[in-house]
């Protein structure tokens, strides 16, 4: 177990180091596409040092007006999927899963810092797999995948920000009382994990802007 942690640590450091060096290269070359990135870096000052904490990241998101827009398609499809699961609608969820697969594929990470790109790539890869499975599973499995997918989307929004206000809700009962989160456009609790069986399980944890 220790080994894994150490190697993950080394990997993380490598990624950070890579990020730092490529940022330097970017400045030297200064082509138009890279220009956007270095400008963005100057805005935030500390981009690329890899040491920012989450509150600082949130701060960045507010400044990144254009970034939040990039997640809007993903958010829209995610919400359609969530609503289908709330209505116990397996076919609707499958269709929404397929659509989400597409919008995840179209998500353009190139405007983000190298470090954020690495994180986004992992998130999108994982989320895509869950969307794929949702497109072809029975509703029980759809909900299992939706649980992990929700985490992915929450993490994605922590980087990109969201254009529309979302509510992050939590139901402590799902998955043998391990609990599960989801995102909703309204404050009212409508549970996608249980649907009509237990519509009101859960409470809002926080608001995402």
């Amino acid at each position: 177990m220790k080994k894994v942690r150490v190697s993950t640590g080394i990997l993380a450091m490598a990624v950070i180091a890579l990020g730092a060096t490529s940022c330097k290269d970017t400045k030297k070359e200064g082509s138009s596409a890279d220009g956007v990135q270095s400008e963005h870096m100057d805005d935030n000052g500390h981009m690329g040092d890899g040491m920012e904490d989450h509150s600082q990241m949130d701060q960045d998101n507010i400044n990144q007006g254009g970034m939040a827009m990039m997640s809007s398609e993903v958010v829209a499809d995610y919400l359609t999927l969530k609503n289908a699961l709330v209505s116990d609608d397996k076919d609707g969820a499958a269709t929404a899963g397929e659509k989400l697969e597409g919008s995840l594929k179209d998500f353009d990470t190139s405007k983000f810092s190298d470090e954020q790109q690495a994180e986004l790539t992992d998130i999108i890869e994982d989320a895509t797999e869950h969307a794929e499975h949702i497109a072809k599973s029975d509703i029980g499995h759809q909900r299992e995948h939706f649980d992990i997918l929700s985490k992915d989307v929450i993490d994605l929004l922590a980087i990109t920000g969201s254009e529309r206000t979302l509510y992050q809700a939590y139901c402590p009962m799902y998955n043998n009382n391990k609990g599960a989160q989801w995102l909703s456009a309204t404050e009212e609790i409508k549970n996608p994990y249980y649907g009509s069986k237990m519509m009101t399980c859960g409470s809002v944890q926080k608001q995402i802007n």
């Binding site: 894994v4 992992d122 994982d126 797999e129 869950h130 299992e144 992990i148």
Partner: peptide
């Protein structure tokens, strides 16, 4: 296995369990 990201590992373990 070790080429998977931490996120993917967790995700796969969850799938394996279910």
């Amino acid at each position: 296995w070790d080429t998977y990201s931490g996120r993917k590992k967790k995700s796969k373990l969850r799938s394996i369990i279910s």
